[in-house]
Simulated scan of single mutants.
Amino acid sequence: MTAGDGAACLVVSPHLSRALSHAALIEAAGWSASTAAGGLHALTQIEREKPRLVTIDPSLEDLSPADLHEILRDDPATAETIVLIPGAQRPSRYGGPFDVTVPAGLTAPDGLALALQALGGAGAPRWHDPESAALSGELGSLPLTDILLCAQELQLSGLLLIYHGVQPAHLVLRRGEIIDAECGDRPAPQAITHLLSSRAPGDFRFHLMPPDPLGAYPRGVNTPTSRLLMEAAVHEDHAHATPNQSALEAS
């Protein structure tokens, strides 16, 4: 990620892997990005770099998202800085002309796309737009494993966005390989295991991206996708066999 030198976007999160992955998506979309581990660190970065966009993790600890947002809005130098605070809980003052409001139930890339769109310019990604997806549908009719098998066979790169329940999720793929996964607060390896083993209904969208901009993306998932899919198939077979086996034992 760009460190200093006036990065256009600043990602503020106490979770390093998440900060780096979100910054990588921003950079893959064509903007420079840097990261800050907390609110106080962010204020130092903001004073030095003067970013046009600041994204604030709702789980910020040293300064609450509300406190950081208030400081930015009360300072004339940052009063018009675009601010994104994803999630349902937002400061009471949030919602002004330079605050990006993301409806509940959208993924992190959806929110980033809306924030980058607020920066202006024709090059903003359209990950939030269902019409821009190369593939979309219901997970009930097309299982996640089948989608990933197709992506692997065709060596597709991009974002697979998953919408189910209160925890939307997303996967990042490069040439058919899963390189990152985000679902709730789970680390990436746990997130992909959870998603592959979940049978929860929902919708999905796949947005294509060029593979080269994802070359610098920090890998959160290091297990080969073929192995992940094989393990998911074994888990699925075991889940189907267990009820039948229990019935035989009971008889």
Rank of each mutant, 00 (worst) to 15 (best):
A181D: 02
L53K: 02
G120W: 04
C150T: 15
M1L: 14
C183Y: 04
I71Y: 11
Q245C: 13
G184E: 09
E70H: 14
G4H: 05
L208M: 13
M209D: 01
S64I: 04
A233M: 10
V234Q: 13
L195G: 04
P224T: 13
H238V: 09
G120A: 02
L156D: 03
V102E: 05
Q167P: 07
G6M: 02
G123E: 12
G121Y: 15
H235L: 12
T193C: 13
K50N: 15
L43P: 05
E49S: 14
P189Y: 06
P76R: 12
P213Y: 04
D212Q: 15
S92Q: 10
R174M: 04
P243T: 01
R205V: 02
D237L: 12
G96I: 00
P103T: 09
G158A: 07
P97R: 13
L156S: 06
G121H: 10
C183T: 05
T35P: 03
G105I: 05
L68E: 04
H240R: 15
V83C: 02
T35R: 00
V172W: 01
E27C: 05
L10I: 12
M209G: 04
I26W: 01
Q245L: 15
R174F: 03
M1V: 14
L139A: 08
T101H: 08
A232P: 08
D62V: 07
A239I: 00
V54M: 05
G4M: 10
E70T: 14
T193S: 14
D67G: 09
T145N: 01
V166G: 10
P211D: 10
I85K: 06
S246Y: 03
Q245G: 11
E182I: 01
S157C: 07
I56D: 07
L106W: 06
L214V: 03
L196D: 04
G87I: 04
A200P: 00
T55M: 15
A169D: 06
A79L: 12
L160P: 03
R199I: 02
I71G: 09
G123I: 08
Q190W: 05
